[in-house]
Design a protein around this nucleic acid. Structure first.
Lengths: 198, 198
DNA sequence: GTAGAATCGGAGTGCTCACTCCGATTTCAA
DNA sequence: TTGAAATCGGAGTGAGCACTCCGATTCTAC
């Protein structure tokens, strides 16, 4: 019960992870992303392991629960979106940046609509680490929206919540549509976001 | 191999179904609708049976497969929507009729969003009898849309496919939102559907 | 190079769920 | 009223899945 020799112990002790462990963790994450995108989130953990070329035990050591694996995959995707949003926050064309980002997310989600379903329903049972990333995404998208509104490119009376709902809904809705229709749906939504202008 | 005594035999032989059988079938359908709405489509058939107050065997005699049960439930819902659409096809205010119907569907789906998820993803594995009802819905909604477009209430360059995608997406997206936000999201979508007017 | 710890692999476990089977019960025509 | 046929009920079956356990393997500090 004396002084702890450990120099630092932050809330989340980031242990350095062995070389092979890190490699396998990454392989599992990639495989999981593919498998869940193709077969839906109902795909078995065993299939993820097979695709990753590791044993089931390995998957479960890195992600003690299937839910935690889903969380991690979703977290990666959201982090990617957050990054894309951040890249655009200082664009000289705020309106273009906003709509460009919107289109990007919808297009990406269309390819892997199993994940987008999860994205839509998210908040029901995926919290934990996901919440942190979701906050980053909210933050970056919030800046994008605010700047677009200041520039008059987006109507002033919509909030971040509405935009995120619209983003999720449009992603979900256009998942099975061909590019042409998807474009027209986006056109309608964008028009609505611009507002009754002239 | 002589003349068949059976007077008529249409493609779908509608056998009159015994009294208790019909009663139970209806009870199962009601229970299924409730259970799937509350617990999601992953809810067990046993729970449906329990809620309906019948044995599992009974559920499986009426609906030989869980998928067929889902199909039947979805079919009922879609039939209800088709009916609502039909009721509005002769409205003196085509634009109002169209948007009114849109809002109705979104509002209904919001309550039971598990089903709306199925509605969105439908077409993947729910066909059969569902297709017939879906055609009715398409037909009625098509009339509503055409009339609204003739009246200039909806932009002319959107098709039925886009509208249905928007309908499904909006339903899905607003499932977890409160009434206020849902209203604002609908406002945006409606604005988009009206087009860059004024 | 080597010891010891961390990690791996995958057969095994227990549970849930869709679906079956058949004796008991109910319906209905005569 | 009655008896044959339709229907019911629910224990039982098999498959699939998330998750565990531990001997074998691989890494790394010295």
């Amino acid at each position: 019960m004396g002084a702890e020799p450990t120099p630092e112990k932050p809330a989340v002790p980031v242990k350095p992870l062995r070389a092979d462990a890190a490699r396998n963790r990454a392989k599992v994450l990639v495989a999981a992303r593919e498998v869940f995108a193709e077969r839906g989130t109902g795909a078995s953990t065993e299939e993820v392991a097979r695709r990753a070329g590791v044993g089931i035990g390995t998957v479960f050591r890195h992600f003690p629960t299937k839910e935690s694996l889903l969380e991690a995959v979703l977290g990666e995707i959201l982090a990617g979106f957050a990054e894309q949003a951040r890249l655009r926050t200082e664009s000289p064309d705020p309106g273009g940046a906003f709509f460009d980002f919107f289109q990007l997310v919808v297009g990406e989600s269309a390819t892997k609509n199993a994940v987008s379903a999860e994205l839509t329903g998210a908040g029901i049972d995926l919290h934990a680490s996901g919440d942190e990333v979701r906050q980053e995404l909210r933050g970056a998208l919030g800046v994008l929206l605010a700047r677009a509104q200041e520039a008059g490119a987006v109507r002033a009376d919509v909030g971040l919540g509405e935009v995120m709902a619209l983003l999720a809904g449009t992603s979900q809705a256009t998942g099975n549509l061909d590019v042409l229709m998807r474009g027209r749906v986006l056109d309608v939504v964008f028009d609505g976001l611009r507002g009754h202008s002239s």
